[in-house]
Amino acid sequence: MTATLETSAENTATAAVTLSGVRKVFGHGPSSVLALDGVDLRVAPGEFVCLLGASGCGKSTLLNVVAGLDAPTSGDIALTTTRPAVMFQEAALMPWLTAVRNVELPLRLAGHKRSSRRAKANELLDLVRLGDAGGKRPHELSGGMRQRVALARALASTLGSAEDGTPGLLLMDEPFAALDAITRDVLQAELLRVWRETDTAILFVTHDVREAVRLGQRVVLLSSRPGRVVREWSVDGLTGEDEVATIEDVTARLREVISGHAAA
C-alpha cells in the first residue's frame, strides 16, 4: 500500500489519463444538450479519484468518453494506460457464461491462449475472494458477488494486456448504488484492498459524498447541466473529525450546486 502511494507521488509528472477542455454535446440545433463543458481533469497512475455530482451532471457521460464508448465533441483525452476498463451500476455479466468464463471474456477478446487466460481469470477471482464460485452462473450469485465478478472482469480487461507493466485504469459508474448498505460497505473495503494490490488508477463516479470521501484520494465535484469541474478536495488518509468536516464541506458545496438550479 505504501509502495503504491509513493509511486503515485513520484509519477506526478506523468498521468494515467489527462482530460483537457473536454466538451460533449448531444443532438444538434436548438434541441441539443450540452452535457460537458470544458472539463479538465488529471488522474495520476495508481490514483483513486472520485467524481461527485448530482444527477444530470454528466458524470456517466464523462466516464463513457474516457472509456472510448462515446467521442467527445471537442477537447482532448490522453491515456498512458492500457485499455480502460468500465464497471457499471449493474454487473452486466453475460448470463450464459460461468463466473470464470465471464472474467476470461476480455482476455479471450484480446486473443490470449486458453490456459493462460484461465489461470489469470482464476487469479483475479481469488483476488475478489470468489475463487470457489468460478463455476457458478450469474443467476446463482448474489448481487454483491456479481458485482465482484464484474470487478474481476474489469480488472482482466485493463490488466490483461499489462504484461509490459503499463498501469491500468478502472472506470466505475456508481458500481455499488444498487446494493444494500452492508454489502456496499463490504464492497467498498474490498475495492480499496484490490486497488492497493493491483496498482490500478481508478476514476469512480458516485453521488454519495460519504462514499466519495471514504474511497478517494481526491474528490472532484462536477456542476450539473453542463458538467464543469467546480472544486477539488484532497481527502487522502482523512480520519475521524477531519473526515466528518470534509464530508460536511463537500455536502454543503454539492447542495449549493444543486440549489443553483432551482433559480434558473
Binding site: H139, E140, L141, G144, M145, I182, T183
Partner: peptide, 12 residues
C-alpha cells in the same frame, strides 16, 4: 468474514 457471511446468505 462479513463478506463470506453475506455471500452465504444472499446467494440464491
Amino acid at each position: 468474514a462479513v463478506g463470506a457471511g453475506l455471500d452465504a446468505l444472499d446467494a440464491p
